[in-house]
Amino acid sequence: MAALNGAATDLKSTFLKVYSVLKSELLHDPAFEFTDDSRQWVERMLDYNVPGGKLNRGLSVVDSYRLLRDRTDLTQDEIFHTCTLGWCIEWLQAYFLVLDDIMDSSHTRRGQPCWFRMPKVGLIAVNDGILLRNHIPRILKGHFREKPYYVDLLDLFNEVEFQTSSGQMIDLITTIEGEIDLSQYTLPLYRRIVQFKTAYYSFYLPVACALLMSGENLDNHVEVKNILIEMGTYFQVQDDYLDCFGDPKVIGKIGTDIEDFKCSWLVVKALERSNEEQKKLLHENYGKADPACVAKVKALYKDLDLQGVFTEYENSSYEKLISSIEAHPSKSVQAVLKSFLGKIYKRQK
């Protein structure tokens, strides 16, 4: 714990120190007899997959807890425990991404080759995903077993994992190769995929962890959950918009939703607004890797003024979210929700 001195000054470096502590504990877990080879494998796998992202989900546990307690100066113990829960979310994210990349036959993730495409890894990555998943209860047991909310934490992670993998299933069975059918892409289907696949673990889970640590009962915070799920939906709509209209230099990747036949908010809106001729153009060109087909779809999006439709959606979503947040009786909960919304409103990447 001495490693955490000076924590308030630089949250990210403190957060990364906690990663090193947790990694070391996992590499010396007494439940398994490690060989040198297996320990090196797990360490390399963790370093490659867990800390490489923006760490927003994990860091927001710490931010949310601070705002809920209305204190900037957390104790060493509180900092360590909030960071630890944040890392459990990053571990969950790594587990989803390692397996998701295999399912999607992806090539790159976070600017480097997907883990399963690394030399000597291949489908061993499936088992690595299972290991990442199993590290979470090991970490929780090691640091929260004596806490009154320990069982609630286990329940929370299990439930969110179930919701996310069920959302992934809807997404996968909607885009089965050789059964491409645009007519099933509707707003209700889109919302279900997004809520379950993204919103629960990316938006609700960090705040729920902070609420449990603050001694709150999650059953009393259903409205907070609903607001965060709406926020997660708005976040994904932005993501879909940026995939097509964002600047690749700013967002750090070239969007491929059109080529990949994704159930994107843009294609759902295009189908809603198209006449028969435009629908025919979409059916003929959507989901094809040919750059000419992609260009036709993008031109149609412009003709249908989807940029204007998105701006309208963004403004009305923001207003709705703000009024839901301000209706919440607790000022500290309002602060948490506004902090989340502030990070994503009108983002460019």
Rank of each mutant, 00 (worst) to 15 (best):
F157G: 00
Q307Y: 02
I130S: 06
I344K: 09
Q168K: 10
G246N: 09
K346N: 15
D128M: 03
L304K: 06
Y301H: 03
S332F: 01
V18E: 02
F245R: 03
K296T: 13
L321I: 08
S106Y: 06
N127G: 09
K346E: 14
C114T: 10
K279T: 13
K280W: 05
I130F: 12
R71L: 13
V160T: 12
K54T: 09
K298I: 11
P188D: 15
K320R: 15
D10T: 07
F203Q: 02
D101F: 03
L55E: 03
L189H: 05
E259K: 14
V18N: 02
G167R: 06
D104V: 08
L46I: 15
D128W: 04
T233F: 10
T311M: 11
S324R: 11
K288L: 13
A31Y: 07
I229M: 13
A292Q: 15
L123Q: 12
G178W: 10
T174Q: 08
K331E: 14
A199P: 02
T233E: 13
L271W: 00
K269C: 08
L154F: 02
V160R: 01
Y65A: 00
F261A: 12
C244Q: 03
T175N: 11
I102V: 14
G122E: 08
V121S: 04
H81S: 07
L266N: 04
T175I: 09
F162N: 11
I251W: 04
M231T: 14
F196V: 00
A2L: 14
T75L: 11
I180E: 14
L205A: 09
R347F: 09
T186R: 12
P119F: 03
S165N: 14
K331V: 10
C209D: 01
N56W: 10
H81N: 10
K141Y: 12
I102Q: 08
K262M: 08
K23Q: 15
F34S: 07
D260N: 13
K280S: 11
Y201I: 02
A289Q: 10
C114W: 00
E33L: 12
Q278D: 10
E78N: 09
Y241V: 04
L11W: 10
V42Q: 06
T75A: 11
K349H: 14
S13G: 08
V98G: 02
T82W: 01
C244P: 01
E312C: 11
K349C: 12
S183A: 12
G6F: 07
D104T: 07
E230W: 03
V336N: 01
A327T: 05
L22K: 05
R347Q: 14
A8Q: 13
H328Y: 15
G232S: 05
Y318A: 04
D152M: 00
F15Y: 13
L306K: 05
T75R: 08
S64R: 02
D257R: 06
L321A: 04
L59D: 01
L4A: 05
L205R: 03
A208M: 05
P248M: 07
T174A: 12
L55N: 01
Y95G: 00
